[in-house]
Design a protein around this nucleic acid. Structure first.
Length: 461
RNA sequence: GCCAGGAUGGCCGAACGGUAUGGCGCACGCCUGGAAAGCGUGUUCCCUUUCGGGAUUCUGGGUUCAAAUCCCAGUCCUGGCGCCA
C-alpha cells in the first residue's frame, strides 16, 4: 500500500505506475477527490471535538464547584455539539473506509531502474550461467513427466484420483531426491546466515492482505472452512500460497529495533495455489501444480539498504543452481510483467531441455521460472504495519521487505530429471545432493505396482 | 470444552465515571576539569505552511453531558479442571 501522503504528493508518478503495470479499475482522480473531502471533514470534526472537549471540562469544573445550573447549561450545549459531531464524523469515517479500500488496490510504484514494457517479451535478460561446460545429454531428452512415470517416481494419475487434478504423488527415489534438494537448499542458506522458520500453513485474511494477496487475488488461493466466494473477514483461514505470507506477517504490527536489522529468514513449506485456468502443454507435469514445496527467503532491511540487499538476495538464490551445476538465466522484469506489490523484480529461469519451446534457448528445451527475487520497498511493510526505529528516541519508520524463492523445488526436480538424464533413461544425482541420499549416484526407478502396469507397451505410456 | 484472572507508551506500572500519575530506557541541553550523579526538555499517530488542534488505555458495540473505569460480544495471554493424541 502506498501512503495517502505519497499518493497526494506524487499523483502523476502513481498514475504512471498504474498504467505501466497495466492495472485496471483504479480511478486515481476519485481517490484524490475522496482524500480532499475527507481532510475537509476531518478538520471540521476536529474543530467540533475541540469545542466539545472545552465544554466537557467546564462541566467537570462546575460539578466540582457545585454550580449545578451552569453545569446543566453546559450539558445542553455539549449535547448539541455531539449531534453535529456525529453527522460530520460518520461521513468522514465512511470516506476514510472507502479511501483505505481504494488505496489497497493501487499497485506499488516501479523503481526507476525497471525496464518499461508491456509483458514478458519486454523483460531484459541480464546474463546466463552454466552454459559453457554442458552435461552430455541423450540424443532425445525424455520430458520429465514421461520419464517420471516410466521410473515410477512421479504419479499424476493417482494424485488426481485422491485429491484432484494438479496434485501428485512423488514416490520412492523421487521423494528421496525431493527431500535431498530441500535439505541441501536449507544448508546452503544457513551458510548465508539465514535463520530457519517453519511457519503455520493456514494464514488469516489480515496476513493475506499484509503481503498483498488480498483483496485482489483471492481467487488464486485455497480457502479453509468457507465457500470460496463468500465475503471474507478477518477470521477466515487460507492455505498459504507461499511462505512469504506467514513469514513477512510474523512481525506484523511490530516495531523492530535498529540493531535487529537486517533479518534474514528462510522458510520451507508446501505452497497451495488454485492456478485457475492454467492448463496446456506448457504446464504439463510437475511444472504448475496446486501443491508444491519451496524454500522461501525473506529479508527485513533498513530502507537505504534494500537495493543492495536485492542484489545479495539474487546471488544467494543463484547459489543453489550454481552448486547443482544447472544452467540458468536471470531476467530483469519489466513494468508490465512485474506484479502488483513489487518495486523491482528479477526472475531466475533454469534450463529444462525436455520440451522444445519457442522461447527457449538455442540449445533447445525451455526456460522454467524457479525463483522470483523482489524488493517491495515499504509497500508490504505499510500494509502490514512493520516498523523499525532508526534512533531510540525517534518515531518509527516502515522498513523494507524483500523475498526470493530459494527455490521452487518441483521445477528444479524437472531440471534435474531432464538435464542429468542418461542414455539409458536413468538420472544422475548431482554431486552436492548425494550426501543427502546416502551416497546414491544414480536414480534407476522402480517397478510399477498394480494390475494397470501389466502388459503396458515399452515407453509408450 | 468449562471456570477464574488479565491486556494501559520501547519496557515496567498507577488511576472513587470528571478527561491517563510515576518510574526505567533513549536523545538533547544545563551543571562538571572530565565523567557519574543531579536538574531541565523531549521521546505514538493524524490534520494543519504557521499558530494550533484532534485521536489513542487489546478489538468492536452499548450506557452517559463525560468511559482506562460500567454493560455486551470477540481476540489473545496466564492459571485451574476436563477431554485427547
Amino acid at each position: 500500500m502506498l501512503s495517502r501522503q505519497f499518493v497526494r504528493e506524487n499523483a502523476e508518478m502513481v498514475r504512471e505506475a498504474i498504467e505501466r503495470k497495466g492495472v485496471t479499475g483504479v480511478d486515481l482522480d476519485e481517490i484524490l477527490r475522496i482524500d480532499a473531502e475527507w481532510r475537509e471533514l476531518k478538520a471540521e470534526g476536529d474543530d467540533l471535538r475541540h469545542q466539545r472537549n472545552e465544554v466537557s471540562s467546564e462541566i467537570g469544573e462546575y460539578k466540582r464547584e457545585g454550580e449545578e445550573e451552569k453545569a446543566q447549561d453546559a450539558i445542553e450545549r455539549s449535547s448539541e455539539l455531539k449531534a453535529e459531531l456525529q453527522r460530520v464524523e460518520d461521513r468522514a469515517d465512511e470516506l476514510e473506509a472507502k479511501l483505505e479500500a481504494r488505496l489497497l488496490e493501487i499497485p506499488n510504484v516501479p523503481h526507476e531502474s525497471v525496464p518499461v514494457g508491456e509483458g514478458e517479451d519486454d523483460n531484459v535478460e541480464r546474463y546466463r550461467e552454466g552454459f559453457d561446460d554442458l552435461w552430455t545429454l541423450p540424443e532425445d531428452v525424455v520430458p520429465h513427466y514421461e520419464l517420471g512415470e516410466r521410473l515410477d517416481i512421479l504419479d499424476f494419475e493417482r494424485g488426481a484420483k485422491v485429491s484432484g487434478g494438479g496434485f501428485q504423488f512423488v514416490k520412492g527415489e523421487g521423494a528421496r531426491l525431493e527431500y535431498a534438494l530441500i535439505q541441501f537448499m536449507l544448508d546452503v542458506h544457513r551458510e548465508q546466515e539465514y535463520i530457519d522458520v517453519f511457519p503455520p500453513l493456514p494464514v488469516n485474511s489480515e496476513s493475506m492482505r499484509g503481503t498483498g494477496q488480498l483483496p485482489k487475488f483471492a481467487e488464486d488461493a485455497y480457502r479453509i472452512g468457507a465457500r470460496q466466494d463468500d465475503d471474507h473477514d478477518d477470521d477466515d483461514l487460507w492455505l498459504l500460497p507461499t511462505a512469504e505470507v506467514p513469514v513477512t506477517n510474523m512481525y506484523r504490527d511490530e516495531i523492530l529495533l535498529d540493531d535487529d536489522l537486517p533479518i534474514k529468514h528462510q522458510a520451507f513449506s508446501p505452497n497451495f495455489r488454485r492456478e485457475a485456468g492454467e492448463h496446456g502443454t506448457e504446464t504439463r507435469g510437475y511444472v504448475r501444480v496446486h501443491q508444491f514445496n519451496k524454500v522461501e527467503l525473506v529479508n527485513f532491511v533498513r530502507p537505504e539498504n534494500s537495493y543492495e540487499r536485492l542484489e545479495g538476495l539474487l546471488s544467494e538464490a543463484e547459489e543453489v543452481l550454481d552448486r547443482l551445476d544447472l544452467p540458468y538465466r536471470v531476467l530483469d522484469m519489466c513494468t508490465g510483467d512485474m506484479g502488483f506489490t513489487q518495486a523491482k523484480k528479477y526472475d531466475i529461469e533454469v534450463w529444462a531441455p525436455g520440451d522444445d519451446m519457442d522461447d527457449g534457448p538455442e540449445e533447445g528445451g525451455r526456460w522454467l521460472e524457479v525463483s522470483s527475487v523482489s524488493n517491495f520497498e515499504d509497500f508490504q511493510a505499510r500494509r502490514a504495519g512493520i516498523h523499525y526505529r532508526p534512533e531510540r528516541h525517534e518515531s518509527a519508520e516502515y522498513l523494507h521487505t524483500l523475498n526470493g524463492s530459494g527455490v521452487a523445488v518441483p521445477r528444479v526436480m524437472v531440471a534435474i530429471m531432464e538435464y542429468y538424464q542418461n542414455d539409458d533413461g536413468t538420472i544422475t544425482v548431482p554431486e552436492p545432493l548425494r550426501p543427502y541420499m546416502g551416497g546414491q549416484e544414480v536414480i534407476e526407478g522402480h517397478e510399477p505396482v498394480g494390475e494397470s502396469a501389466v502388459g503396458e507397451g515399452d515407453g509408450d505410456a
